[in-house]
Design a protein around this nucleic acid. Structure first.
Length: 709
RNA sequence: GGCGAGGUAGCUCAGUUGGUUAGAGCACAGGAUUCAUAACCCUGAGGUCCCGGGUUCAAAUCCCGGUCUCGCUACCA
């Protein structure tokens, strides 16, 4: 394998609508950072880019929720996220943002070029239009009842209650948030990226060329998409938050966020080039550049299918690999900021790193554990107990302890200087130690090149373990007792300590990509400059000069105490509760806000209400609809007749549990076919803040068919 | 429901193209030691390789069926 001329490494752009948690860190940023630090130690030409993704519909939505502007949201989160990464040692060469004019220009040009070359298609479809406001309604300007959970304030692109991705057409009773009127359907034109034209290319490139050097999950998912038949994908939206469509007919439209966001990697590179007086172009256009995207598994399709097509069309290079990680769970459950079940990077930094007994060592402690349990091949799980055991048992006891005992002994037995080697006393143990260092270097290098960070880190720790074993066999402290009687004792001590010290120097080099703060501290202890950490020095056994005085021992890490772990676990439960209460409290708040935000449904007169025929019905039969996860087929007794009604509640109720229930039915709703079954009516449901559904039932059992007014 | 990836020791994970007795670290137990952050070192115990079939002289590995977890996707009036 020949060495690429240069590298361009990207980590998924964090969406700037909130804080990011340690799952994100473990998924993309930390492995990317390790890889980049390794490449830089190899003195490769490498640029590590990232930045905030600041467009898309969720950000204006967030703004509405917080009673502020989209700009204010991104201006709030961008710097926090950027600083969080710094505090955790994620060393981007540039942390850019997609709201930057340079990015607008880059994305705009990208689109124009594709459009001019005929690589895009336009399609005219019917979209919701607000006649009163005389404008097309972007997804976020349409509210209605979520078809998934029944939440009545769902937006046209997503229901915030259940998180379901929606399209406006799916909303029940859609209403414009601008005028409060029901929107009409009107034709609008949008640009599409015809992925179907590139099926052959993708098939060859992924399924042939990269079938074996990409991770199984990545190839598998791409295969699933390609074999499923690729469809043209809309690249524009009727929205005002984002990058204006820069061609004729694009008025009032912006680039769809998925189209603009990955181009952010390119704009970030451009900005970096400007800052450093470099040329950005070779990093994206020269075949000798190796491009690697670090992402989480939810992002595979964009980085392996869609963006590569865009890159190819625009004349850029393609990623050499996309080492997507699986997800990291937390104490038995999925991580979720909105549910309060997560550890935000910001939280960890404030609670551990910025404490008196914290410091950057605690950033490395977290990095160590996250890498030790990195979800490289399957979902993994963060537990505080695991964090404690991993840090105390391996990082402190094996690695840091070896460095510490080496330092203490060297000061006690070698006059605080690097002792000289007495070749006449060198034995097979000494030679084996030097060989282990070389072997480990080779292993770690190979593993890093294969993106196997977990295993690579393990090998580094293992080298410290070898150091402990070596010292145990040599027992310099025993030799020291006999120093008066054994004339060879000091020479043997010198040899042992010399070996241990050279091993420490190597450990600093090898551990540097994983634990950069620790490597720095080791350099400080050794009184050497950063250049010693160059990868080419790994495996050498003459890094510390004989006679050189080293600094007094200092602990590299502290142990994690039981009480700290208990406090974190308690905090986690408290967060969960607090979040629930917040969510419950937001219901009246949201209701109160509806008037000011214009989202209240239009006023109706009594006659309108009278049009709805509400009845009490009794569920007499219930069964799951085949091939549908959410649908239940219900037979409801209305007294005068029994009819079939479909309801999307299968995730919430078991069929056998709801037979006999009295429920409220919209009896005169137009019939609708779903999954081949006709539904005649609709069951009314109430929903609490946690998303749990409740039947709306009369307080006491009454005759089926009774009307409601 | 479709597709993809997983299910191996209490925990976190390895197990190349099928090939002796399925491995490592942590945790645990016993021993040894004291330079070191009660750290290190040595030894040990631990597994129905998710379940059920099949192919084979031989299956954790290949094939079929089932089941659980996660992701993408469909379904929601």
């Amino acid at each position: 394998m020949n060495t690429p001329k240069r590298y361009l490494i990207t980590a998924a752009l964090p969406y700037a609508n909130g804080l990011k948690h340690i799952g994100h860190l473990a998924g993309a940023y930390l492995p990317a950072d390790i890889y980049v630090r390794y490449l830089k130690a190899q003195k490769r030409d490498v640029v590590f880019v990232c930045g905030s993704d600041e467009h898309g519909t969720a950000i204006p939505i967030q703004a509405t929720k917080e009673g502020t502007t989209a700009q204010a949201i991104i201006d709030k989160y961008h710097p926090i996220i950027e600083q969080n990464f710094k505090d955790l040692g994620i060393a981007f060469d540039i942390y850019h943002r997609t709201s930057d004019p340079l990015h607008h220009e880059t994305a705009s040009d990208f689109f124009k070029n594709l459009e001019a070359k005929g690589d895009l298609e336009t399609k005219t479809t019917e979209q919701y239009f607000d006649e009163a406001a005389n404008t097309f309604l972007a997804d976020r300007y349409i509210k209605g009842t979520c078809p998934s959970c029944g939440h009545n304030e769902a937006y046209g692109d997503q229901c915030e209650k259940c998180g379901k991705t929606l399209s406006p057409e799916e909303l029940i009773n859609p209403v414009s948030t601008l005028s409060g009127k029901a929107p009409i359907k009107k034709e609008t034109t949008h640009w599409y990226l015809p992925l179907n034209r590139h099926e052959e290319f993708l098939r060859d490139w992924i399924l042939k060329d990269h079938a074996h050097d990409w991770r199984a999950a990545v190839v598998g998912q791409c295969k699933s998409w390609i074999e499923g038949g690729l469809q043209p994908r809309a690249v524009t939206r009727d929205l005002d938050w984002g990058i204006k469509v820069p061609v004729k007919g694009g008025e009032g439209k912006v680039l769809y966020v998925w189209f603009d966001a990955p181009i952010g990697y390119i704009s970030a590179t451009k900005q970096w080039a400007l800052n450093n007086n470099k040329d950005w172009a070779p990093y994206w256009n020269d075949k000798e550049t190796k491009l690697v995207h670090f992402i989480g598994k939810d992002n595979i399709v964009f980085h392996c299918i869609i963006f590569p097509v865009m890159l190819k069309l625009n004349g850029h290079i393609l990623p050499e690999n996309v080492p997507a990680n699986e997800f990291m769970n937390l104490e038995g459950d999925k991580m979720s900021t909105s549910k309060g079940w997560s550890i935000e990077m910001d939280d960890y930094i404030n609670k551990w790193i910025k404490k008196e007994n914290g410091g950057p060592a605690l950033a490395d402690s977290l990095r160590f554990y996250l890498t030790a349990i990195a979800p490289e091949s399957k979902d993994s799980e963060f537990t505080w107990k695991g964090f404690q055991e991993s840090v105390n048992g391996e990082l402190v006891s094996i690695f840091a302890n070896f460095v510490n005992r080496t330092w203490v002994l060297m000061h006690k037995l070698c006059n605080s200087k690097v002792p000289k080697i007495h070749t006449e006393f060198l034995d097979s143990e000494d030679l084996a130690l030097a060989q282990s260092v070389k072997d480990t270097t080779d292993k770690v290098t190979a593993l890093l090149e294969q993106y196997k960070f977990r295993e690579a880190q393990f090998e580094v720790i293992n080298l410290a373990r070898i150091g402990n074993q070596y010292m145990q066999k040599k027992e310099p402290w025993i030799l020291a007792k006999n120093i008066d009687t054994d004339p060879t004792a000091q020479a043997k001590i010198d040899n042992c300590m010399h070996g241990c010290l050279q091993l420490c120097a190597n450990l600093a080099i090898l551990v540097n990509p994983f634990l950069p703060f620790t490597a720095q501290k080791m350099c400080h202890l050794m009184k050497v400059v950063d250049r010693m950490l160059d990868w080419e020095n790994a495996g050498k056994f003459d890094l510390l000069k004989v006679g050189y005085t080293l600094r007094a021992p200092e602990l590299l890490f502290r142990k994690i105490e039981d009480e700290e772990i208990e406090a974190e676990l308690a905090q986690l439960q408290a967060n969960l509760k607090a979040k629930k209460i917040t969510m419950e409290n937001t219901i009246p708040t949201e209701a109160a806000n509806t008037e000011t935000t214009g989202t209240l449904k239009p006023e109706i007169v009594f006659d309108d209400f009278g049009k709805i025929d509400l009845r009490v019905g009794t569920i007499v039969e219930a069964k799951k609809v085949e091939k549908a996860d959410k649908l239940l087929e219900l037979l409801v007794d209305l007294g005068f007749e029994q009819r079939t009604i479909l309801s999307g509640i299968a995730m919430h109720f078991k069929p056998e549990d709801i037979v006999g229930k009295q429920v409220t039915i919209v009896a005169n709703l137009a019939p609708r076919k779903m999954r081949g079954i006709e539904s005649k009516g609709m069951i009314l449901m109430a929903e609490d803040a946690a998303g749990k559904l409740y039947f709306v039932s009369p307080s006491e059992a009454i005759a089926a068919g009774s009307s409601i007014a």
